[in-house]
Every structure is written in C-alpha cells, then in structure tokens.
Design a protein around this nucleic acid. Sequence first.
DNA 1: GTTGATTTGTGAATCGATTCACAAGCAGAA
DNA 2: TTCTGCTTGTGAATCGATTCACAAATCAAC
Lengths: 214, 214
Amino acid sequence: MKKIPESTVGRLSLYLRLLRDLSDRGVLTVSSEELATRAGTTAAQVRKDLSFFGTFGKRGLGYSVPELVKALRSILGLERSWRVALVGAGKIGTALLGYQDLRRQGFVIEAVFDADPSKIGRKWNNLQIRADDELEDVLSQGIDIVIVAVPADAAQGIVNRVVRAGVRAVLNFAPTRLTVPEGVTLKTVNMAAELEGLSYALVNEVWRAGDAGE
Amino acid sequence: MKKIPESTVGRLSLYLRLLRDLSDRGVLTVSSEELATRAGTTAAQVRKDLSFFGTFGKRGLGYSVPELVKALRSILGLERSWRVALVGAGKIGTALLGYQDLRRQGFVIEAVFDADPSKIGRKWNNLQIRADDELEDVLSQGIDIVIVAVPADAAQGIVNRVVRAGVRAVLNFAPTRLTVPEGVTLKTVNMAAELEGLSYALVNEVWRAGDAGE
DNA sequence: GTTGATTTGTGAATCGATTCACAAGCAGAA
DNA sequence: TTCTGCTTGTGAATCGATTCACAAATCAAC
C-alpha cells in the first residue's frame, strides 16, 4: 500500500460527514465537483483522495452516496466500535464524557480514571471514576484508544504507562508535546495553540483565504 | 512580507512553550539543534521558521532564551491581551470558561452567550450568561475573538452574525465545516475527526513515525 | 448504434514546504 | 592577531502534496 497523506485522511472524515448529510436528505448520487464545493476543496483533490483506496465512482455519473458512505466508513475503520478510556476527569474530561456524538460514531468510553482520591466514585452516565492505579489492569482488558485529559506535567507519564499497557492510539488534550514509540499513533488537540494562531493572524493582518479552518 | 506557511506559525507556538520551560529552569541560551530536538523537528526547520521573521541568533552561540521568548511573543501577538466572547454555554463551553490557562496567555473571556433562556443568569467566575440576542451589541464593543461552542446546525448562523458584527477571528468547536468571508480567520477544533484519524491508523496498521501528533 | 454530454481515474506538471550544505559570523585560546 | 570550534542564516536541492489535463467510461437521446 502506498503512503497516504495525513491530510487525505482528514478530508475523508470530512467527506463522510458531508455524505451523511446528503444521505439524510435523500440524495442518491454526488459528483466530485459537488462534494468538493461542500468540502471547500477541488474536484481533482476529492478524486485523488478516493483513488488511494480504490475506485468508487461511475464515469459520467458520479458517486453513489450510500456506497461511498459505506466505503469511507470501512476505510476509516468506523464499521466496528472502539473501546475508549478517559484519563483525567477534570473540566475537559467531563465535557467529553457528556459528548454523546462520540458514542454515536462508535467511540464508547468504557472507563474513566483520575488521580484525585476525592473524585473516585459514581459519576455521569453509569461510569464509575477509578483510581489511577487501576489503569494498567483495565487497559490491558482490551481498550483501543486512550484520551488523555490531565495537566500538562502529568501527561507524558500517563502516556508512557498507557503505551506500556499495549494501547496503540492516544488522543491528547494536555497542552504539551508528547512522544510515543513507533507503532503508536498520537493526536494532540491544543486549544491554546489554535488561539495563538488566531492571535498571529490578527496582528499580521492575514489576508489569506477565509476558511483556514478544519 | 513573504507568505508564511501555517505550519510555521504552529511551530512557533510550540517553540515558545518550550522556551518558556527553559527560561523557567534558568537556561540562558539554546541552539537550533537543542530546540529542534525538544520540538521533534530539525535544526534547519527551526532556523528557517525563525528566518521568516528576522534574525534572532548569534552564530557560534545560539539563541538567547529571553530574547527569543520576547521575539516570539511579539510575532504571535501575545504581548497584548485579547478580548474573547464565548457563544454556547454547554459542556465544552463551560470547560473552556474554567480553563485558567487561556487567561494566563492573554485570552480573556469577557462575555458568554447561550440560546437557552433557562441558562441566562449568573454563572462561573463573575460572568453572567447573556441571551443570544445581545450578541451583536456586545461584540461590536471591541471583542477580538469569538469561540463558537454551539450545536453543529446552529454554528454557521452564529458565525455569520459574528462576522457581520465585525469580528475577524473565530475558533470553532462545532463538528461541522464553516465558511467565513475573506479577511476573517477561522480555526476549527474537531475531536470527532481526530478520533477518526486514530481509528484509521488502527485499522490500517500505520507504521509511521510515532509522534504524528501536534 | 451512433452521437453528445458528463464525469471519473490518473500520469504529468506545478506548487509549496522541508532538508541539505556551506559561507559567514562569533567567542575563546594562544 | 590569528586560529579553532561551533552555530547561524540562507540559496539550492529534494521531497511531497495539489492541480492540471485528458483518455476512458457511462448514460440518454435520437
């Protein structure tokens, strides 16, 4: 298999969301041009992105919406559900816990951990907050993804333990750079950095295309 | 001024964080090599990134940490503070409200809005949640940045109003693609998309470098 | 069945970002 | 002052992603 640009994967995610909208509205086929417009990219980009994974369209016709949804779900690994653990039951952690969309997409939070003893106990929808020292036990029982939502200075330590326990995918909300060994995928969501990007744009009068987002 | 890659701006943010750590530990100078190692990039990249904005180092010596911190703060527009409004006082919104780090970086949340009448009233640290229809009034009184944390289907409508009120920087947490006119900068934080990236990596056995994050 | 109107899939060309490689500058030693 | 060791700043080379452009496939009309 060739090397797939990370940006392509991000766009597939977006295409899928747009296709679901179309599907909900009963639209049956869509052209690369139409999809590109909605995604804020070009028709060639859409076709190239898809072509990495196979051929899904019909020349002269476009793409079948239901078929493409199915294909993208398969490519993105969304046909199964994923077992997720959340480490850190602070503000961001609890916000994520209540984020019902995740479950709907197949990301099921099955365990929550926190270092603060006063937090251990029942909380939110049928999930009991566990003590940090149970981490390894629970993770090795088949957790696929760990969400790290602890203070910056604790994050690398948690990630090390998580990786040692065999987890191969980590989503980090701590505002710090983390390192993981080869074979483990790490994504970081850094709100502070995004705000600094906005600050930069404001002081440097960025004229650039409006939708730098996504 | 030449065109600056967006990725460069993101890295400047990271360098600044690393430099502050060094500064706190009393380190006075740093080489591009040292900084690159901490940032997970290359020395050449560090020097190229900085060279877009001027020359900050001394050949043979490296960079003065305090001076570089000052320079980066200036480049990123962090020497002043920014007036921020938050639209949507749901889970994510309140998590952000409590995120003390933002204020420390100079992003001061000055107003909070919500569409739900039952939420209007006093809440969190000395901020009163306001009704949606006060939005235009408050924004035009000098808000620099708006954080959108409303449901996906309401987000574009809010952004349109925000832009019409003259705001030129928006941070979006709604899981949807938004469009803004030229001259307005939009950044989107999309947790669902990040998780789908992890899902993709898991099913496609991505061998790639460990620290794909950041 | 042939024509015309579409739209895909993809090699080739272009564009943009990263990396290389080295001259130039600085500090300290002699 | 000159020499040595080190590190920056930057044009040139490389690498990777996006865009172009067109042959091939499909459908509808006649």
